[in-house]
């Protein structure tokens, strides 16, 4: 039934909803506590999942195919091979790196030990290389296979194991995280609806009276809706504070000490704000769902 509610009625429901939160004293505190605990865990998991996701994406973006070119090939063949690779669907960029460049890279990457490799400068045993990037990192494997089948290609390297394992890990991390969050949210809804149910049981007589006086179900339900939403939002205050503070600490103190190339946390702005908003939203939803679910039973009189 959709009827336009008058402003003063909305006002009345808001007032009643707020009053109920205070009237139920410790029950409200218990509900808020349940939401708080849940949201702290949900927040922590979301932070973890989003950052893992970001890191995985960083790695994915960095996946290159090193195409080692046969040592015996002449210049024209090398150019032709380059054109062939460029013609493959889904290839983003093809970069030629001569064997001298490769040696240089190797030497720098080895640091101190690399100096001994300097001996090879006269007689470089390395191959010329095409460095290929896929437009979509997921296509890396398919492209690599096509390149491997071409003439004048000695070998193709793209960290096959690393890429595959990473994709797998990412997939499971996402699934497990979502299942855990789902479970937590469900538990919180259950807890809150039970707490509110206890307070409603005491009020079931009142609900009955309201109905006898001609109150519609909607009229009775709205204050409970507001009450649940308030409980949820109040329950999200502490988690939001904790996440803001915790994430700020992580960003300013911890992430500086991490030097691994792919491990970069999402920036505080906007991530922490978005996350906070999401947490307040989830909190409100949990509260509303819990209270509306528990009042439903008492309206069927």
């Amino acid at each position: 039934m959709i009827t336009v509610m008058k402003l003063r009625t909305i006002n009345r429901h808001l007032r009643e909803g707020v009053k109920n939160v205070f009237r139920n004293g410790w029950m409200s505190v218990a509900s808020i506590g349940a939401v708080t605990v849940t949201l702290i865990l949900v927040g922590a998991f979301l932070t973890l999942i989003f950052n893992l996701n970001q890191m995985a994406e960083n790695v994915e973006q960095d996946v290159e195919i090193n195409t080692l070119i046969d040592l015996t090939v002449n210049k024209e063949d090398i150019l032709e091979l380059g054109d062939q690779i460029k013609a493959i669907d889904g290839v983003d960029s093809v970069l030629f790196s001569s064997k001298d460049d490769e040696l240089q890279k190797l030497i720098t990457s080895m640091g101190e030990q690399g100096k001994s490799w300097g001996l090879f400068e006269q007689d470089n045993p390395l191959n010329h290389v095409y460095i290929v990037r896929a437009k979509d990192p997921n296509q890396t494997m398919a492209i690599a296979e096509k390149i491997e089948a071409m003439d004048h290609v000695e070998e193709v390297n793209y960290g096959k194991d690393v890429v595959e394992r990473l994709f797998e890990f990412n997939k499971y991390a996402r699934i497990i995280g979502l299942v855990l969050i789902g479970g937590l949210v469900f538990t919180a809804i259950f807890l809150i609806s039970n707490t509110i149910k206890l307070t409603i049981m005491a009020r079931s007589r009142e609900i009955g009276i309201m109905k006898l006086v001609g109150a519609t179900n909607g009229f009775i339900r709205w204050p409970f809706f507001i009450e649940g939403m308030l409980l949820g939002i109040l329950g999200s205050i502490l988690p939001v504070t904790a996440i803001m503070a915790g994430y700020y600490y992580l960003i300013t103190n911890v992430s500086q000490h991490i030097t691994l190339p792919f491990v970069k946390l999402l920036p505080f702005n906007p991530f922490a704000w978005q996350l906070s908003l999401a947490i307040v939203g989830v909190g409100a939803l949990i509260g509303i769902w819990g209270s509306v679910m528990s009042v439903r039973k008492f309206l069927k009189v």
Partner: peptide
């Protein structure tokens, strides 16, 4: 409707109990 056990809302005052029957009809305050 009037009942033997009155059926008043215990947390509302006399005025509020009577007003409730009008509030549900969204009458002007």
């Amino acid at each position: 409707v009037i009942f033997q056990d009155f059926k008043l809302l215990p947390k509302l005052s006399t005025y509020e109990n009577v007003a409730f029957a009008l509030e549900v009809t969204e009458e002007h305050p």
